[in-house]
Design a protein around this nucleic acid. Sequence first.
DNA 1: AACATACCATCCGAAACGGACCGTTGTCAA
DNA 2: TTGACAACGGTCCGTTTCGGATGGTATGTT
Lengths: 178, 178
Amino acid sequence: MPDEIQLTPTSYIVLGLLSMFVGEATPYDLKGMASASVGQFWTLPHSQLYAEPARLARAGYLTENQEQSGRRRKLYSLTELGRDALENWLGVLTPEPYVLRDPALLKLFFGAEAHTLAEGQLETHRLKLAEYEALAQHDAGTGPRGPWQALELGIRHERETVRFWSEHSQTTEREPPI
Amino acid sequence: MPDEIQLTPTSYIVLGLLSMFVGEATPYDLKGMASASVGQFWTLPHSQLYAEPARLARAGYLTENQEQSGRRRKLYSLTELGRDALENWLGVLTPEPYVLRDPALLKLFFGAEAHTLAEGQLETHRLKLAEYEALAQHDAGTGPRGPWQALELGIRHERETVRFWSEHSQTTEREPPI
DNA sequence: AACATACCATCCGAAACGGACCGTTGTCAA
DNA sequence: TTGACAACGGTCCGTTTCGGATGGTATGTT
């Protein structure tokens, strides 16, 4: 008796992680997977990763079974319904645009000095960029293509951001050519 | 007796709009201002623009006075405290990175076909880009610098996004050089 | 035995969301 | 002049999300 529920991005993250990695996972596992991968560009509080699988299980997208031994952890895995839902979602076109929420951009908008902002932002984004690039280096060619492509887009956004703030920083620092 | 409250980005949007435009505004006015400007890159439901000013007023950041005449609308304006809070926020460095939430990116990550996604995304982002560029054209040089700079960063992100999806579209469409 | 440290999970208050719903004012045509 | 409709202006409320506080359990270590 699956309840009717609406699948949100969070839902698909759970479904996706479950399909991508192992067959069975605890919320704690999911937490680890998420923060190591998709968490880079779609954060969610870990409490969601406890609530959401339970919700999905209730609606028939996952099976839930609890360990009998010590910790009595809950193990989730995809059902047919779950796998179908995921496939279907992946196949459907999405015209929706992204949502970019940048506190620095907000400040800039309301009149903060660009070069002041740049100080803070440059550091942050250069770090992020370096991290991404290291990642990209690491799994070039290996494994599924999706994460790599996603990372690629992330890198481009970061690069553009670094470029922007560089141009606005007081010392007119420039990025070295790539 | 201002309550202690925590100022969120939403709070600063209200404070910022109030300082940027008129001295006094109703939530309805704010709604209009927001959707025409900052709403492009930081959306919030209009109900917030009724709730938030009330909250800010309670805490002493705004004054609230109600019309005596017909509609008895509530007019808000900045107090010293409010203006200071805004100034202070603008002056403080923000190391926080942006949050980018892109449904298409999520799909890509989980294995959707890039060229399928590209179909939907290209259209959306080209439109958005065109819209932004029209805006930029329009207020080049005029008015305060902040909104213009913010727009500039928005444009860059869009350009990069369009470029990305162009490269992944099946027909390998290219953007004409700018 | 005591303790440190992962590991694992739940809860809860505070926001944010977003849409349904409702009254009012103005205006334009029948 | 009246009725209809659009635009104006606002409130409410159920659902999600956020994110941090809290607290328990296994494993090993001295």
